[in-house]
Design a protein around this nucleic acid. Structure first.
Length: 225
DNA sequence: GGGCTGATTTGCT
DNA sequence: GCAAATCAGCCCG
């Protein structure tokens, strides 16, 4: 049994310093009350931070691709079928995570937007990793170490980033005000260069293809294909 | 780089 | 029963 503190102020790792910076810059609750497509655009360039409650490694990355799913009248939105147990969280307060399982393998991570009882959310489709890359590789499988170019494969898709960051059903409904999960403004030293926001139709859906509600950081290598 | 296909589970009709 | 807000592996070049 040691009487020494595990960490003193002059022993903070660079990762701990970054986490303290990020939590201080987390987006406030009312950010998520904005119109869904506004949130989808504004999330580009922000940092998603996950500190799993099982105490596994923290990870973070810059959001580079999103999609908006907007209310019961959007045919691609899960809420189009009405309120069900699965999509329940989307009908609740904004600023929470909506995670769900699909294709027998994959978790998806969404941010609930707009007022309670209006079912809408933003799907996070890709991030550029900035913290916890070793943990991401572990969770995604060592075969990815084959080539350095495969680094982009860690998180360039909605299922991949959930796997890499340890996001699953335990986060469904969880607040985005931390400490386990939050989104923060990017510190200037990590910020992306000025970018163009590109809007296209959403991916992997069969209805609502005419709506340009997918947004990504133009030219970024970590956007999905 | 791109195209095709099988895997695998849940939710909802 | 079937479709799903997907991915990896395989083939081709």
């Amino acid at each position: 049994m040691s009487l020494q503190p595990l960490v003193t102020n002059n022993q903070l790792s660079s990762e701990e310093i970054l986490l303290r910076t990020l939590i201080a810059q987390k987006l406030p609750e009312d950010f998520y009350l904005q119109a869904t497509l506004t949130v989808a655009r504004q999330l580009l360039g922000k940092i998603l931070v996950v500190l799993p409650s099982d105490d596994s490694d923290a990870t973070a990355g810059i959001i580079v691709e999103t999609e908006g799913y907007v209310g019961q009248d959007d045919p691609a939105c899960h809420a189009a079928v009405g309120r069900t147990r699965r999509n329940e969280i989307m009908w609740g307060e904004s600023g929470r995570a909506y995670t769900y399982f699909t294709y027998g393998n994959h978790w998806m991570f969404n941010v609930v937007t707009e007022s309670a009882d209006y079912p809408a959310a933003v799907l996070v489709r890709a991030i550029q990793p900035i913290m916890g890359l070793a943990a991401m590789r572990d969770r995604r499988g060592l075969h990815l170490l084959k080539s350095k170019a495969d680094e982009r494969n860690l998180t360039n898709g909605p299922g991949k980033l959930c796997r890499a960051m340890g996001i699953d059903g335990t986060l469904n409904g969880q607040s985005l005000q931390g400490p386990h999960l939050y989104i923060a403004t990017c510190p200037p030293e990590l910020a992306l260069p000025a970018f163009e926001t590109v809007a296209t139709s959403r991916i992997g859906i069969s209805r609502g293809l005419e709506l340009p509600w997918r947004f990504y950081v133009g030219g970024n290598r970590y956007v999905s294909k």
